[in-house]
């Protein structure tokens, strides 16, 4: 199969970008989308052009490095997978595929399809942790956690920090990302001592980074490669209100 790619090219953060069209060499439908880009890059390199820069690492859907908006959808056409788990058999021979970087003001483009997601680290540094010194921990079984709470915390903790939720949201809201971390710790007894402080600080960092507000469109949940639920956003809203009322 062959496809035509319309890819966003941008030399650096300061320079303007534009779409370029490339016709791919012959492809195997069992290639992953990123392997297809590898092939295109090999071809570009051989022809003396600069290859397309794109983010990727583990290529098994867990590191959260890969991004890309494929035909308008972060991580491509399927639910519950990352771009690296998207395969060319999801497209048809002769298709035109539009490939763009994540678009959000807090995620500036670094080059071509690569964006900076430092804003997420900033939010995590504001409170995405439990303050426990190494060596100070009590025995692991001294603190029982009800299985349903542990399971729900794990559902939230599955977030890979890829930023697709922000990319999909028409408001570039980071609520799903923030809610996942806030919920994980709010559900666990270990997270209680810093419960109010954490949510207040993380929301503040989120706002300072310039993410938009949640208007409950559900786009984030629909593109999340780990199927993180909107319910966690409701929980974040609840946690924040609780923290305000308690004067956290």
């Amino acid at each position: 199969m062959k496809v035509r790619l319309k890819i966003w090219r941008q030399p650096n953060a300061a320079a303007p970008g534009r779409f370029e069209t490339y016709d791919t060499p012959d492809l195997n439908p069992n290639m992953s989308f990123l392997e297809m880009l590898d092939v295109v890059n090999e071809d570009l390199t051989a022809r003396g052009q600069e290859p397309v820069a794109f983010d990727h690492d583990c290529r098994e859907g867990i590191c959260g490095t890969c991004s890309l908006v494929i035909n308008g959808k972060p991580h491509g056409p399927h639910r519950g997978v990352a771009t690296c788990q998207t395969y060319m058999r999801s497209f048809k021979d002769g298709d035109t595929i539009v490939v763009e970087p994540f678009r959000a003001r807090p995620f500036p483009v670094i080059k071509d399809l690569i964006v900076s997601r430092k804003a997420f680290d900033k939010i995590m540094q504001a409170g995405g942790f439990i303050s426990v010194r190494t060596g100070a921990a009590p025995d692991a079984n001294s603190l029982p956690v009800p299985k349903p709470a542990a399971d729900e915390a794990m559902d939230a903790a599955a977030c890979i920090g890829c930023g697709a939720c922000v990319a999909a949201c028409k408001n570039a809201s980071a609520m799903l990302f923030v809610s996942a971390k806030v919920s994980q710790f709010a559900l666990l007894p270990q997270g209680q001592p810093e419960r109010e402080r954490r949510v207040l600080r993380m929301v503040q960092a989120m706002d300072e980074a310039g993410f938009g507000a949640c208007t409950v469109t559900g786009s984030c949940e629909a593109v999340c490669p780990k199927n993180i639920s909107l319910d966690f956003i409701a929980r974040l809203n609840r946690e924040y209100a609780r923290a305000l009322l308690k004067g956290g």
Binding site: F129, I130, V132, A136, A137, P138, A140, P144, V145, P146, K147, A150, D151, A153, M154, A157, Q184, F185, L188, Q190, G191
Partner: peptide, 8 residues
């Protein structure tokens, strides 16, 4: 203690 959600 860090909040790693191990299976229970």
């Amino acid at each position: 203690a860090q909040g790693v959600p191990f299976a229970r």
